[in-house]
């Protein structure tokens, strides 16, 4: 039953997302693309791009879109795809919201707890590795092209965006739009 598996998968993803939208993307990538195989890494890259240039939290956007695509890819209708999108977006926030409610009710005083602080500083180190792994896993022929000109264009775009976003504070939205323009020109007009 794919709907139940979708629910449980995103429940798990939500419960273990520590450290922002990229951490959520890393977990979704690992569970949905690597483990379940519901999406190709090409579809996932398109989803992440779309999630970053539309309004709203990136984690929610990615969950919504992934839920839709997973159900439609499994051969169900678009209406059931929308049901899948809602299941994914709601289950990804379910555990955190319950935890937040408990914390808001009882634990706000203990926010400076040294044990939690120690665990968090360790987690922060690990999350960096997690996101690095997600980036590595997304380098596939699906996203970069098999060989020939597309591979070289992809490597150039990757290098340019990597350097610019590392060195300058350029908005990811602008970089995604510019890469889209470059892609449109290179593959649509030149090649």
């Amino acid at each position: 039953m794919i709907f139940l598996r979708l629910f449980l998968t995103f429940l798990k993803i939500g419960a273990f997302t520590f450290g922002g939208g990229l951490a959520a993307i890393a977990l979704i990538q690992n569970e949905v693309v690597e483990k379940q195989g519901w999406l190709t890494s090409q579809e996932f890259a398109d989803i992440v791009a779309t999630s970053q240039i539309t309004p709203g939290p990136v984690g929610i956007n990615t969950a919504t879109y992934t839920g839709y695509t997973a159900i439609v890819n499994a051969g169900y209708s678009e209406w059931l795809g929308i049901v899948g999108a809602l299941i994914a977006s709601l289950s990804v926030i379910l555990v955190p919201v319950i935890l937040m409610l408990i914390v808001s009710r009882f634990l706000m005083k203990h926010k400076d707890n040294p044990i939690i602080a120690a665990a968090m500083s360790w987690l922060r180190l690990v999350i960096v590795g997690l996101i690095a792994a997600a980036a590595l896993l997304m380098v596939t022929p699906d996203t970069f092209g098999h060989a020939g000109p597309q591979l070289w264009v992809s490597i150039s775009i990757f290098a340019a965006v990597f350097v610019v976003s590392l060195k300058f504070k350029v908005s990811p939205i602008l970089l995604i739009v510019l890469s889209g323009v470059v892609g449109g020109l290179v593959y649509g007009v030149i090649l």
Partner: peptide, 24 residues
Amino acid sequence: VFEAIFKGIRPAVVALIAAPVFNM
């Protein structure tokens, strides 16, 4: 056209996940 645009965007998405790793 759509496919051409996304062919350009996909490697950028990977870069936008990889670059913050070093800032983080």
